[in-house]
Write a protein that binds this DNA or RNA. Structure first.
Length: 482
RNA sequence: CGGGGUGUAGCGCAGUUUGGUAGCGCAUCUGGUUUGGGACCAGAGGGUCGCGGGUUCAAAUCCUGCCACCCCGACCA
């Protein structure tokens, strides 16, 4: 049987059940979020994709400033000697650093690294600035991009250059640094849940998964549609590792010379990959209303008929006046059907159809992107109705994502049980762990899964490690990850 | 770094086996008719066939060297 055009269109996006990675690539390309650049692993973020990043930026930036942080900017290039100062750090990052060796045609005396992260350059400056406990805390953040020479790249999830923010703070006491580390993690968690409608598990990273040079790394972990985890944000308590290596010291309250305690924390454009893999479907993107660059798209029907466009613009003005991000597509060269599919694919939360029939009945046709539910609403108070609907959608999308994650989260009985479940129904496995790195390495070797985190919210699932039988120390989440 | 694949119009591809005027669909532009789930008719523009070397009267096609990108693994936000 011949396919009709609608089926043809849907076929342009690979079904996620058939091939999840291909589905992801199709969605990103078809919706014009990014393009590949001439340099491998480096992506161009197009306007629709960049708008998503801007929404994340403005939400987080406000939260940072509300908690006393200020924005700064440190240089892109770091002298090799600075990078080498903290041993674990340089060992962690050296394999993926890009180097600048020439200025113009002249070979440089000392090669310069393109920052893979900025702890070292920032610490070298902090060392120059800090004198007294009275100047503490330093609460700085920067929005920038970093470069890590990756072997295998995927748009948003892993690119050689990515946009992020990195906060770098100094504190007088270990307690303050720990409080800051946890505060920033909780800000990330709130942002993910409130803005992106992505539920996350928060907790501590294991020794082997922590940031190179950190005392402790905390993480938020989200679960994707395919049951793989995505590390969505990290907050590091760096202790005094860097402050001692970089000789950052100050005169304390008692007159003694002291080293401050240090934190760093970041989230990146990777979040956009998570946003796609948590909410979207086989028809394309599904964006939560709060982050959608356009929340409502109005499509006039038979727009040349008397009064249609006037009414459509009147509606747009009413919604715009209520701070709803609304747009209208009154282009004449595309049919309504084309527009329906286009904006559906782009994940715009609501579509409003308005034509002669509606105007006669003082109504509009409203279609939800998340459920594809079609409803007819009166035009008496459109701004109030649409605003409520957007709020409902935001709430329901978070609930659905949470339900989907919980459905893919299970406790395990034994290592064998874990292997079977992880294979048949990938997701978050909850199990007990003895804390030894050997166990952790074995899990990874056997199954490809890793310990994602030791969650704050602990459960007692038994006295012994599910992986080796030794006495258990923590309940952990285990999953394959991006 | 291993394994696979692909480079021909903006995008997706055919043409390569068997050398002989570079094609198709979509997109774009012009004009007209259309508009409630990817409209229709008529016309138009657009190419150093990834790059270098070779064979030949003649190369997208054969030989040879290189390059790039994509996918799957191992390593990493």
């Amino acid at each position: 049987m011949a396919l009709n055009k609608q089926d043809d269109f849907v076929k342009e996006i690979t079904k996620m059940e058939d091939d999840f990675p291909q589905w992801y690539t199709d969605v990103i390309r078809k919706t014009d979020l990014v393009d590949y650049s001439p340099v491998k692993g480096f992506m161009v973020i197009k306007p629709y994709g960049y708008a998503l990043w801007e929404a994340i930026q403005s939400d987080l930036d406000k939260r940072f400033k509300d908690t006393g942080h200020k924005n700064v900017y440190f240089p892109l290039l770091i002298p090799e000697s600075l990078l080498n100062k903290e041993k674990e750090h340089v060992e962690g990052f050296a394999p993926e650093v890009a180097w600048v060796t020439h200025g113009g045609s002249q070979r440089l005396e000392e090669r310069l690294c393109v920052r893979p992260t900025s702890e070292t350059i920032i610490c070298s400056m902090y060392s120059k600035w800090l004198r007294s406990y009275r100047e503490l805390p330093y609460l700085y953040n920067q929005w920038c991009s970093v470069v890590r020479w990756e072997k295998a790249t995927r748009p948003f999830l892993r690119t050689s250059e990515f946009l992020w923010q990195e906060g770098h703070t100094l504190h007088e006491t270990a307690e303050e640094a720990q409080a800051e580390t946890l505060q920033m993690l909780s800000i990330y968690k709130s942002m993910c849940e409130d803005l992106l409608a992505i539920p996350v598990v928060d907790g501590l990273k294991s020794e082997s998964e922590k940031f190179a040079g950190a005392h402790q790394t905390y993480t938020i972990e989200a679960l994707m549609h395919d049951g793989k985890a995505l590390q969505s944000g990290t907050s590091h308590n760096l202790g005094q590792h860097f402050t001692k290596a970089f000789d950052i010291s100050f005169q304390g309250r008692t007159g003694e010379e002291e080293y401050p305690f240090h934190t760093s924390w970041g989230v990146s454009t990777r979040l956009i990959g998570g946003l796609i893999m948590v909410h979207s479907d086989n028809r394309g993107l599904v964006l939560p209303p709060k982050i959608a660059p356009t929340q409502v798209m109005i499509i006039p029907i038979a727009q040349k008929k008397e009064g249609v466009l006037d009414k459509a613009y009147e509606l747009k003005a009413a919604l715009h006046h209520a701070d709803i991000r609304v747009d209208i597509d009154d282009s004449e060269n595309q049919s309504p059907g084309w527009k329906f599919n286009e904006y559906e694919m782009k994940g715009m939360p609501l579509r409003i159809e308005i034509g002669p029939r509606d105007i006669k009945n003082n109504q509009m046709v409203v279609v939800r992107r998340d459920t594809l539910e079609k409803m007819t609403l009166s035009l008496d108070q459109p701004a109030k109705d649409i605003a409520e609907l957007l709020e409902t959608m935001q709430k329901e999308m978070l609930e659905r994502a949470r339900a989907s994650r919980d459905e893919k989260t299970y406790s395990i009985e034994s290592y064998d049980d874990f292997k079977v479940k992880q294979k048949e129904n990938p997701g978050f496995a909850k199990g007990m762990w003895c804390g030894c790195p050997e166990c952790e390495a074995k899990i990874k070797e056997d199954t490809g899964a890793t310990i994602r985190c030791i969650p704050f919210e602990q459960e007692d699932l038994g006295a012994n490690c599910h992986f080796c039988g030794a006495p258990a120390k923590h309940m952990v989440y285990v999953a394959r990850a991006y």
